[in-house]
Design a binder for these strands. Structure first.
Length: 728
DNA sequence: GTCGGAATCT
DNA sequence: AGATTCCGAC
C-alpha cells in the first residue's frame, strides 16, 4: 500500500538538525511556516490545503509581515519570503504546487526526525529505548506539524522521559530557543506561540486569542482545508496509531503492536494545554513519520476525518523507533546504504529472528537469506529482495535481528555497534573490470572481454539509476542515492553475475562516507517537475504509477508489477511527495512484506533492466520479459548494465572523484541515465516509484559485505553523533 | 506569479 | 547555512 515504499529515511543532514543547530540559529522559515499552519489563528493567513503537506498562503502579505516581524525584518515582503521558500525547493523541504497560487507543499520526509535525532532505535529489544524521543520540551519550540496532534496528547510521558544524555542536552538547546528573534529574549514562541508578548499584536489581528490555538479543538481550524485523499490522515494515522505500547519492540518486532489507532485520537484537538504547549512534550513530529504507512494498521482512516486533523501527526517515540528500525532493517534487507542511519546515533539495528538453520552451504549468505526469509517478524520485506534467479535463494540481506545476540550466529554480523569490529571501515564496492576469461585471455589479443564478464562500475554515481532503483524499493531516494553512491553496491545482479563469474567486486574503503550522505538521487528537480505528481525523492516507493504513464518501472516490472501492486487507488497521489516513512518494522507492514517479497524479486529483474536497453537489445522491452521468465533476459541487461557502469566508473575515477559534491553527482547520475536511455526517469524522483521498483537492484552480493560496512558506518555515525550531541 | 542567479548579510 | 535583497526572465 501505501507505499510500500516509504520514504526515505535518509534525510539530509540538515533535515535533522534542530533549528538551533549551528547553522541556523534563528528560526527557519519552514519552521515558522509550520508554526503558523498549526495555529488556528492564522488559518486565514495560511492553512493546510489539498494534499498532504500542502498549504496555501492565503494572505501573502500578512505572512510576510509575520515573518518579517519574527526576523525583525520589517522590509520583508512576499517576494522576499517567496524567494526564501524557493530555496527550499532544492533542499526539498518544500516544493511549489504548480498551478496553484501561493500554494506550496512540504516534503515532510525531510523534516521528520528533526526533532528526533536521537532516538534509540530498537535498541535491543528489551531495553528499549529509552531514548526518548528527543522531543524538545521546550514547549513548542519546534514545530508540531500538524496542528494539534494526537501525539501531543499521547504520551507526554514518554516523551518526557527522555533519557538524559543527549537528549537532554538537545532539549535544552531547543528549548532555549530555537528561535530567537529579534527581541532578545523573546523566543519565537512569544510571538506565535504564546501570544503573550508583543506578538500579540499579530494575533490580535488575526483575531485569535492566544488561547485559540488549542482550544478549539479541533475542528475549527482545519476545516476547510482538508482534504481528501488519504492524504494526511491516512498516512498519519497509519503510523501514528501506533504508538506502541510496548516499548520493547524487541526482538519481536513491532509487528503486532501498533494497533490502535484509536488510542491516539485522531482528532485534533489537542488536549494539551496551552499553546506552545509548553507542556507539550510532545513532539512535534513531522508528519512524515506518521505517514508511514503501516499497512497493517487496523484501522483505516476515516474519511471523515480531515486529514488535517489530528491524526496526522500523531506518533510517538515508539513509533519513531519502529520507524527507524524498519528503516534499518530495510537497509539491510535491501542492501541499502547505511548512510541513512548516520543520523541516528543510537540506533541499534534490529535483527530479525532467524529461525534457525541456515542453509547449509552458504554460510553467511545462507544465513542472511534465511533470516530474511524468516523475517517474518519484520515484515516480510525481506523477501523483497529477490535474489536473482541464480542466487535465488539467498536473500541478500542481512537482516539484523533485533537481538543479535540471541540469534546471532557467529557469522552474523552483529549490528550492534558495539559489537562491530573496530577496524571495519566502510567499503565501497567497485566493480572491476571484467576479468578476462581464460579463453579471453588467450584470445585476448583479440579483444575485448566478453560481455558476460561485464563489470559495472558501481561508482559513485552509477548506481543510481540502476541500483538506485533498488533502493527505491523501499526507501527513499536517499537511500537509493546511497546505493548510488556505490556504497552498497553489490546488487543481486552482481551476484548473479558473479555466479556467472563475472565481475569482481572490489571493496574500497570509503574515505568519507559522510560526504556522500546527502547524495541523493534527488533532486533539485523536484521543483521542476510537478511536484504533485511526482514524488519527491521519496517517492520511490510510492506507488504512484498507476497514474503515471511514465512509470517505466512498472512497466518493466511488467506484469508483476501490476499484479503485485496493490493498489490503493488513492494512494498514489498523496504519496508522492510525502511518503511515508518506511514501513514499519516487521510485522507492521505486511503488505510490504509480502508483496514485495516476491514480487520484488521479479521486479528486480525488470528493474535492472530498466536500464536502458542497450541498443543491442532488441528486447528492450524489458517489461515484457516476464518477470518470471527472465533469467535470461535479466542476464543480458545486467551485463549491459554492468558494462555501463564499469565504464562510468572508470570515467569517474578518471575525472577524479567528485563524490563529495553532492549536487554534482546527482546530476551526473541523472544525466547518465538519460543517456543511457530513456529508461528512466524514474530515478528522477528519486524514487523509483514505488511499486514496481522496489526491487532493487541492490546487490545482494554486496550484502555480504554490506552488513559489515553498515555496521561500521553506524558505528562511526554513532560516535560522531554522540560527539555532536555532546557539543551541544 | 513564479523562478532562480547574484550579491550580501547574519 | 539560511536567509535577505535585488532583479531580469518567463
Amino acid at each position: 500500500m501505501k507505499t510500500p515504499g516509504d520514504s526515505g529515511f535518509a534525510f539530509p543532514d540538515w533535515a535533522y538538525k534542530p533549528e538551533s543547530s549551528p547553522g541556523s540559529r534563528q528560526i527557519q522559515l519552514w519552521h515558522f511556516i509550520l508554526e503558523l499552519l498549526r495555529k488556528e489563528e492564522y488559518h486565514d493567513v495560511i492553512a493546510w490545503q489539498g494534499d498532504y503537506g500542502e498549504f496555501v498562503i492565503k494572505d501573502p502579505d500578512e505572512v510576510a509581515r509575520l515573518w518579517g516581524a519574527r526576523k525583525c525584518k520589517p522590509q520583508m515582503n512576499y517576494d522576499k519570503l517567496s524567494r526564501a521558500l524557493r530555496y527550499y525547493y532544492n533542499k526539498r523541504i518544500l516544493h511549489k504546487t504548480k498551478g496553484k497560487r501561493f500554494t506550496y507543499k512540504f516534503n515532510f520526509n525531510k523534516l521528520v526526525l528533526v526533532n528526533y535525532p536521537f532516538i534509540d532505535m530498537g535498541s535491543t529489544g528489551s531495553s528499549v529505548p529509552q531514548s526518548a524521543p528527543p522531543v524538545p520540551t521546550g514547549a513548542g519550540t519546534h514545530f508540531r506539524f500538524p496542528p494539534s496532534t494526537p501525539s501531543e496528547v499521547l504520551s507526554p510521558n514518554e516523551d518526557l522521559r527522555s533519557p538524559g544524555g543527549m537528549f537532554s542536552s538537545v532539549a535544552r538547546r531547543m528549548a532555549r530557543g530555537s528561535v530567537s528573534d529579534c527581541s532578545d529574549g523573546t523566543s519565537v514562541n512569544s510571538e506565535i506561540e504564546d501570544g503573550n508578548t508583543g506578538a500579540g499584536e499579530e494575533r490580535g489581528e488575526r483575531g485569535v486569542s492566544g488561547a485559540g490555538e488549542r482550544g478549539p479543538g479541533g475542528g475549527g481550524g482545519y476545516r476547510s482545508i482538508i482534504h481528501p485523499r488519504l492524504s494526511h490522515e491516512t498516512l498519519f494515522r497509519m503510523y501514528g496509531g501506533a504508538g506502541n505500547p510496548t516499548g520493547h519492540p524487541g526482538s519481536r518486532g513491532p509487528t503486532g503492536h501498533r494497533i490502535h489507532p484509536e488510542p491516539l485520537s485522531p482528532f485534533p484537538v489537542s488536549p494539551l494545554p496551552g499553546p506552545g504547549g509548553a507542556g507539550l512534550l510532545a513532539p512535534p513530529l513531522s508528519p512524515a513519520l506518521s505517514m508511514t504507512p503501516t499497512s497493517h494498521l487496523p484501522y483505516t482512516p476515516s474519511p471523515t476525518l480531515s486529514p488535517m486533523l489530528g491524526s496526522h501527526f500523531s506518533f510517538n517515540p515508539e513509533d519513531m523507533k519502529r520507524y527507524l528500525q524498519a528503516h534499518t532493517q530495510s537497509v539491510y534487507n535491501y542492501g541499502l546504504s547505511p548512510r541513512a542511519f548516520l543520523q541516528y546515533p543510537n540506533i541499534v539495528i534490529p535483527q530479525p529472528h532467524r529461525p534457525a538453520a541456515d542453509k547449509a552451504g552458504l554460510v553467511e549468505r545462507g544465513e542472511r537469506a534465511e533470516r530474511a526469509a524468516t523475517a517474518g517478524e519484520r515484515g516480510g520485506e525481506r523477501h523483497h529482495h529477490p535474489p536473482l534467479a541464480h542466487s535465488a535463494h539467498h536473500h541478500p540481506h542481512p537482516p539484523h535481528s533485533a537481538h543479535p545476540h540471541s540469534h546471532s550466529h557467529p557469522m552474523h554480523h552483529p549490528l550492534h555497534l558495539g559489537e562491530e569490529p573496530p577496524h571495519m571501515s566502510p567499503f565501497k564496492f567497485k566493480l572491476q573490470p571484467p576479468p578476462l576469461g581464460r579463453k579471453q585471455r588467450d584470445s585476448q589479443s583479440q579483444g575485448k572481454p566478453r560481455q558476460s564478464s561485464m563489470s559495472s562500475g558501481s561508482g559513485s554515481g552509477s548506481m543510481s539509476s540502476t541500483s538506485g532503483l533498488g533502493s527505491s524499493l523501499s526507501f527513499g531516494s536517499d537511500l537509493s542515492s546511497a546505493s548510488g553512491s556505490g556504497i552498497i553496491s553489490a546488487s543481486s545482479s552482481t551476484q548473479s553475475l558473479n555466479s556467472a563469474g563475472l565481475p569482481k567486486i572490489k571493496v574500497e574503503p570509503i574515505s568519507d562516507i559522510e560526504s556522500e550522505e546527502e547524495e541523493e538521487v534527488e533532486v533539485t528537480d523536484i521543483s521542476d517537475e510537478d511536484p504533485d505528481e511526482r514524488d519527491e525523492d521519496f517517492e520511490l516507493f510510492s506507488p504512484r504509477h498507476p497514474r503515471a504513464p511514465d512509470h517505466h518501472h512498472h512497466r518493466l516490472a511488467n506484469g508483476s508489477t501490476a499484479a503485485q501492486h496493490q493498489p490503493h487507488p488513492d494512494e498514489d497521489l498523496d504519496e508522492d511527495v510525502f511518503k511515508a516513512p518506511a514501513p514499519p518494522p516487521p510485522g507492521l507492514s505486511p503488505f510490504f512484506t509480502s508483496h514485495h517479497t516476491h514480487s520484488n524479486v521479479h521486479r528486480l529483474l525488470p528493474t535492472l533492466k530498466t536500464e536502458p536497453v542497450e541498443p543491442g537489445d532488441g528486447n528492450t522491452p524489458p517489461p515484457q520479459t516476464g518477470t518470471s521468465g527472465a533469467p535470461q533476459t535479466k542476464c543480458i541487461p545486467l551485463k549491459l548494465r554492468f558494462k555501463r557502469r564499469w565504464s562510468e566508473d572508470q570515467r569517474m575515477e578518471a575525472s577524479q572523484e567528485e563524490s563529495d559534491d553532492k549536487k554534482v553527482r546527482p546530476e551526473e547520475e541523472r544525466e547518465r541515465e538519460r543517456q543511457s536511455n530513456g529508461r528512466m526517469e524514474m530515478e528522477e524522483d528519486g524514487t523509483g516509484s514505488g511499486e514496481g521498483d522496489s526491487p532493487p537492484p541492490l546487490s545482494y552480493e554486496g550484502s555480504l559485505a554490506t552488513p559489515l560496512r553498515v555496521s561500521a558506518e553506524l558505528h562511526r555515525a554513532t560516535a560522531q553523533l554522540s560527539l555532536e550531541n555532546k557539543d551541544c
